[in-house]
Simulated assay, not measured.
Amino acid sequence: MDSARWSRRRVIGAGVAAAGAALTGCSGDSGPAPRLRLATGPEGGPYNAFGKALARAIAASGRRLEIVPVSTAASVDNLRELDAGSVELALSMADVAADAVLGREPFSRPAAVTALGRIYVNYTHLVVPADGPVQAVRDLAGRTVAAGAAGSGVQVVAGRVLRAAGLSDGPTAARERQLGLAPSVRALRDGEVDALFWSGGVPTPALAALAGDLPLRFLALDGHVGALRERHGPVYTAVTLPEGVYGLAGPVGTIGVGNYLLARAGVPHDAVRDVLQVLFDRWRDLLREVTAGARLEPRFAISTGDVPLHPGAVTHYRSVYG
C-alpha cells in the first residue's frame, strides 16, 4: 500500500493521547482492563449479533480489553451516541456515517467520529407478497410501506429510494411506517403493510423464514443507484441478490451500502490495534453472524470515504500491510 494513498486519508490526531488517558482503565498495564462500549442495534438484529460476537472474540483472545455491546435503534442513533461520548465504538451504515461527518440531515452539525474499517456490505431488500399487485417500486404509490425503525439506517435508505422514485410527497407518496425488522415481517405477513424495506446481510434469517411461510417478490432497486450516488455520493453501489437465496428463481439487482466499525478519536491506539487484530483473525466467525459469503480484506476495509480512519487504525494497517 503506497504512501500516496495514506496521504489522502484524513485522520484526526489532535488530542488523541489526552483523550485516550481519560478512558476507564487505559492508563497503563495495571488495574482493570480497558472497557469500550459498542453501540450496536436492536436485540435480535445483525448489528447486535455482530457486537456480541466481537465481544466474545475479544474476551476469548486473552487481550486486556473488554467490549460491552449496547442495544440501540442502530445507525443514526449510534452516531449520535458516539458523537456525544455515550459510547466509544459504534456500528453504522456508510451513508449515515458520511452524513454525520459532513453534518448533513439528519445531523445538525458535523460529528467528530473516525473509522476502524469497512467490515461488510448491506443489501437493500424491498419485499412484497408475490401474489400482490406490486411488481415495481412505482407501484408503491399510495401504499403502506414498512420503512425501518426510527433512528435506523434502513429508514434513511428507504426514504432516499422513495424520494428517487417520486414517492415521498404529493398524491403519489407512499405511506411510511417506522417499524423494525421483526414488526415489519409481522405486518407484511398480516397484510398491514404492502411492502417492507430491510438493509442487511444475505440471507437475513427473518426474511428467509418469512419466505418459507409466504411467497415473496423482491423488487429490483439497482436502477436507482445512479440517482442515489449523484445526490448522496459513492456510498451506494449496485449489488445482486443471488439466485436461490430466499427461493429466488433468478438474481435481483439491488443497492449495496457498506457497514463501518467506528470509534471516537480518543480511543487509545492499543485498544484499536487489539480490536482490529481480533477482527481480522476471526472475521469468518464474526461475519457468519450477519451475512453469508462475505470477506474482510484490508483494501476494502480502509475504504471509508468521507469518514477518516482512526489514527490507531492507520498505524495498524501500515504496520501489518505496508
Results as ranks from 00 to 15, higher is better:
145 V>R: 04
209 A>S: 14
128 V>P: 00
161 V>N: 02
120 Y>L: 14
135 Q>Y: 11
180 G>W: 00
164 A>C: 14
204 T>V: 11
164 A>L: 07
132 G>K: 03
210 L>F: 04
128 V>N: 00
114 T>G: 04
108 S>Q: 11
196 L>W: 01
95 D>E: 15
223 G>A: 15
224 H>D: 14
145 V>Y: 06
155 Q>V: 14
113 V>R: 03
217 R>N: 09
210 L>A: 09
228 L>N: 08
175 R>M: 14
123 Y>P: 05
199 S>N: 08
188 L>K: 00
162 L>C: 07
148 G>L: 10
185 V>S: 00
168 S>R: 10
154 V>G: 04
146 A>P: 05
171 P>L: 10
107 F>V: 11
111 A>N: 07
148 G>N: 09
208 A>T: 11
115 A>I: 01
182 A>W: 03
225 V>H: 07
120 Y>K: 07
199 S>R: 04
185 V>E: 00
163 R>Q: 12
175 R>F: 12
165 A>E: 06
211 A>N: 06
131 D>V: 10
229 R>H: 08
154 V>N: 06
150 A>I: 14
171 P>N: 11
179 L>P: 03
197 F>A: 01
225 V>A: 10
192 E>F: 11
150 A>N: 13
204 T>M: 11
143 R>P: 02
195 A>C: 07
217 R>K: 13
181 L>Q: 03
130 A>K: 08
178 Q>E: 13
161 V>L: 08
118 R>W: 10
136 A>F: 08
204 T>R: 02
138 R>G: 14
211 A>L: 05
215 P>K: 09
206 A>M: 08
194 D>S: 12
131 D>N: 13
180 G>C: 03
157 V>Q: 05
130 A>H: 05
96 V>S: 03
166 G>N: 12
181 L>A: 03
206 A>G: 09
138 R>Q: 14
114 T>A: 14
202 V>H: 02
113 V>E: 01
142 G>L: 13
172 T>K: 13
201 G>I: 04
195 A>W: 02
96 V>H: 00
147 A>P: 06
120 Y>A: 06
107 F>M: 15
123 Y>N: 07
116 L>Q: 00
224 H>G: 14
120 Y>E: 04
177 R>N: 09
206 A>I: 04
172 T>R: 13
224 H>A: 13
183 P>L: 04
127 V>I: 12
151 G>Y: 06
134 V>G: 04
192 E>L: 15
187 A>H: 03
137 V>Y: 04
103 G>K: 09
169 D>M: 11
229 R>L: 09
105 E>S: 15
206 A>W: 05
203 P>E: 11
207 L>P: 00
164 A>D: 05
155 Q>R: 15
103 G>M: 10
227 A>F: 08
102 L>K: 12
110 P>G: 08
116 L>V: 01
96 V>L: 03
218 F>N: 01
205 P>R: 10
208 A>M: 10
109 R>Y: 13
221 L>P: 02
224 H>I: 11
229 R>G: 08
160 R>M: 15
182 A>R: 12
161 V>Q: 03
135 Q>L: 14
160 R>K: 15
221 L>M: 11
149 A>Y: 07
142 G>Q: 12
198 W>Q: 09
143 R>M: 15
131 D>W: 10
157 V>I: 15
115 A>S: 13
129 P>H: 08
108 S>H: 12
157 V>P: 02
